[in-house]
Amino acid sequence: MQYLDIMVISSHALTITYFIAGLLHARNFFSQTPEYRWLAISLFFSVATEVAGDILLYFDVIPNYASIPYHLFCVVTFSGFFYHAINWAPLKKPIIIVNVVYILFTSVNYLFIQKIQSASYPQTIRSLVIIVFSITFFYKMLKELPTHQLQRDALFWIVSGVFFSYSGKLAIYSVTNYLITVQGDNMIIIWTFHHLLTIIGNTFIIYGGFLRLRKSNSYSS
C-alpha cells in the first residue's frame, strides 16, 4: 500500500468520523443548547468541505478551492461553540475582534500572500485561537466546578478532543509553508498525520455525543 492510499483512506475515515459526530450532536437540533448547535454546524461544515474537496478532485480540479469557505469561517463556528460552552459574557467582544481579524487576515492571505497554494498561516492562527479557547474553558471549569464527575461531562470530552487534536495540528501547520515552498514536499505523509490527529479528536467528540445520548435517554425513561 502506497502512502497516497493511506492518506486517501485516512481522509475518508476522517469524513466518516465528522459525519458520525455531526449526527450525534445535531439530534434535536432546535431544542438543544447553543453550544451544541454551533458544534453540529461546525462538524457538518467540515463534512461538506471534505465531500466538496473529493468532488473537485474527481473532476481534476485542485481540492484547495473547496476549503476556502472553511478556512474563512470555521473560526466563527468554533467561536460560537466556545462562547456558549465557556458561558462568560466579557468574552463576546474579544471573540468578535478575533473573528474579524482572522477573516481579514485569511482573505489577505488568499489574495496576496500564500494564495490558493496553501492556507497554513491562517490555520496556524486558528490552532492557536482554538487552544486559547480550550484553555479558557478548562480554567473556567476549574474556577466554577460545575460538575462533580468530569468524566461524565460531554463538553469536557468535546473540548479535550478539540484541544488535543489542534495541539498536534499546530506543529504541522507551523511547518507546512516551509515544507511546501522550501522543501517542495508533496505533503502526503504530513496530511496523513493531520487526518489521524483529527480522527483522534473526533473520537473524543463522538464519545461526548454518546454521553449526551445516554443522559437524554436516562432522562426520558
Binding site: S160, F163, F164, S167, G168, L170, I172, S174
Partner: peptide, 17 residues
C-alpha cells in the same frame, strides 16, 4: 523533527487535560 514536534504538543495537551 515534525513527528517529535507533534508528539511534544500532544504530550503537553494530554498533561494539561
Amino acid at each position: 523533527i515534525i513527528a517529535i514536534g507533534i508528539v511534544t504538543m500532544l504530550v503537553m495537551a494530554g498533561a494539561i487535560i
